[in-house]
Design a protein around this nucleic acid. Structure first.
Lengths: 221, 221, 221, 221
DNA sequence: TATGAATGAGTGTTCATTCAT
DNA sequence: TATGAATGAACACTCATTCAT
């Protein structure tokens, strides 16, 4: 009786097809028919599983967010307790290879364009935004940054992450995840140093790893 | 007979109406009829002046870019020759009040969402992106940053500018231009200091001005 | 194993659900899914029992007709042989409380709207129409009305019955069955009197009953 | 500049096409495309002139009502002051040849089927119904019928008119307008006579005319 | 120059029907 | 028997575009 779960599978298939269709045709030209065709289903099935196009799009954005959040949680779990390492984990999750596929970045860009006018998407975006901000803020606080400045550092970091991502999406040329991590990581360290926060051992290890990876990459290039 | 120039006026009216319509209805729901109504013209007239909707949208994005570029040029002209001051001029232009109106930010966000799928808009975006990057890079070079690193610093700065802008657009809550300039300026200075580049006199003046403005603002708030 | 008859039960459940759905949503918005839901079955089951929507609707109208016809037969059986009493029986059956429920009247109205364009429903309607007409005609003949005029009086009576019913359906306000019977009864009597047909004993009894019922009703109101 | 009035003309064309389409395909199968094709226009124009299908249908029913009302008004104007003649005028208007075309009767039948579920159509129907009722009631009153009974006689008459019309629509065989007028007229006279109201001169003239027309018709048949 | 009536292709969505389970 | 997932044709409606005036 493998009937259970067919709904979940179909929904995920449709969400993946939606992301692919946005990448292939752009948000405006992503029609129900194209999504359905890409998913190998009939147009009527979307109504069956999502009710409407708006709900499918909302579910798609929610899936993107959930995937990202899952990654953050996983990396934080692996990072241990050292706050600087946890910052790197957050940054690293945002620049995980799986998140930086062109398809994904294009989808984010498209959804961002809708955020100011589609309340449902705006809500989702605000949830993500706040969560990233508070995650960062907490670790800055644990690093000894004065509480009056943790929000500011979180904003610097979040802006840098989003800016790098967006520019990658706009350039069309993919995202160099190693360089992105280094760029954000160095900026974080400079801000910390300026506030007298010593780089802890974990950060040094992480920085060394990043540089090694980058050297490796240059050789292969 | 002031017949000459009527075309220019009508075109600008339509472009402004387009930006307003994108803000009011979102990119997808911005129809020719709505734009025409907002501009106080008949739908048929758009075809007369722009040929098609695609061309009107392209012209609108081009106008946004041109306005920004004009502002950069003007501020660079006022900034004199000191490279740090010129960096501040570039940053300041990007966070000029006139550029940070909600209408404008929403329009940018909307266009960014189209960039990966509309070649004409992609070309415009790339022009802007390169110009910003090379403007920044030049000044970093003139500040004595090793040429191997000027591009990197330009990328940090550009990402930060775009990221701050985008987050403002997504949050829906407007952009605190003073805080934005401070945020980007401090990060630039930290990177310069880390590379042994002393803050020149102009930078110090600028930093003092920003802080004064901020203090002022706190009082009024 | 009461398996026998399950089909009959299911069919009647679906027919009742159809009448209810027409009342609730209107003929056009009565979908298979809604009917099935109302009957507590799955949409696929309708096909099993009726083959198609058209056949279900035809069966529903046929059921309405059969119910009415059964009522006429029963009342005629109770009326004895006096022709005027039999006319009252026919009229009374058409204004029986069970036939005048809003649900039923709305269903009739809906089916009448389809009659000119759905041959199957047209056939059913014509059967009912002819049967009513010939039932009435026969009794008028037995009352001594010249045969050249029995058809005419049957038409007057039938038109009055249908007209009263239709106006009740259109007004939405239910049908005052006592007043309806009086209205039709009096008109019949006037036409009979004009043709020199004396009211027979049964008619007098019936008229008295109707008036008594009406007096009763006024008191309670 | 015959631009003025084009809207009125187009609207009437679409209304006529709607009546024709309802007659040809039935209410449910009357699609925008079929109406537009019948009117020789494109589907989009309907939206231009009526906004939606619902509004077109409402306008169509309103037009049927207005046509009928205009006819009643015209005949009443010609009827003079004699109340019995005015009753005949009202009945005659309802059975005017122009109102009894099969197309028209089928359209009425179709709309009646919608009345219980489409509020806008219900409102129109109620207006017509009340107007007919009060028109009839007034003349019965002027004929000397006790005021307690004028409503009752109006209801008898209205039911008869509607019933005759409906049976004609259902039978599919057209409406014998002369017979219809005689049927309603005689019933009215019987009810009046039963209440001691003498037929006035105008009524006698009218009755004579109807009989003459009927004799004429029999000869040609 | 300017209008807005007119077009018709394309959209999201509904729904009777089918069919594997 | 009974289910409900799946289909796909058909629908009302939108909108960029054209064109007579």
């Amino acid at each position: 009786m493998p009937r259970v779960g067919v709904s979940k599978i179909r929904r995920r298939q449709l969400i993946d097809a939606t992301i692919a269709a946005i990448h292939a045709h752009g948000y405006d030209d992503t029609t129900m028919a194209k999504i359905a065709k890409r998913a190998g289903m009939s147009p009527g099935l979307i109504a069956h599983y999502f009710g409407s196009k708006a709900e499918l799009l909302e579910a798609t954005m929610r899936a993107l967010l959930t995937d990202l959040q899952t990654l953050v949680a996983k990396r934080l779990g692996e990072a241990g307790e050292a706050p600087r390492a946890r910052l790197s984990a957050i940054v690293g999750a945002n620049f995980d290879e799986s998140q930086c596929a062109r398809e994904t970045v294009a989808a984010w860009l498209a959804f961002w364009g809708q955020v100011p006018h589609v309340p449902a998407l705006g809500r989702l975006q605000r949830i993500y935004s706040r969560r990233l901000h508070s995650n960062l803020k907490r670790e800055f606080g644990r690093l000894g940054v004065p509480s009056a400045q943790t929000g500011y550092l979180a904003e610097v970091t979040a802006s840098l992450i989003d800016g790098v991502w967006m520019r990658a999406g706009l350039s069309g040329g993919g995202l160099d995840t190693v360089a992105a991590r280094r760029l954000v990581g160095e900026t974080i360290d400079l801000h910390l140093a300026a506030r007298g926060v010593a780089r802890d051992a974990a950060a040094q290890v992480e920085a060394a790893q990043v540089e090694a990876a980058q050297r490796e990459k240059r050789k292969t290039a």
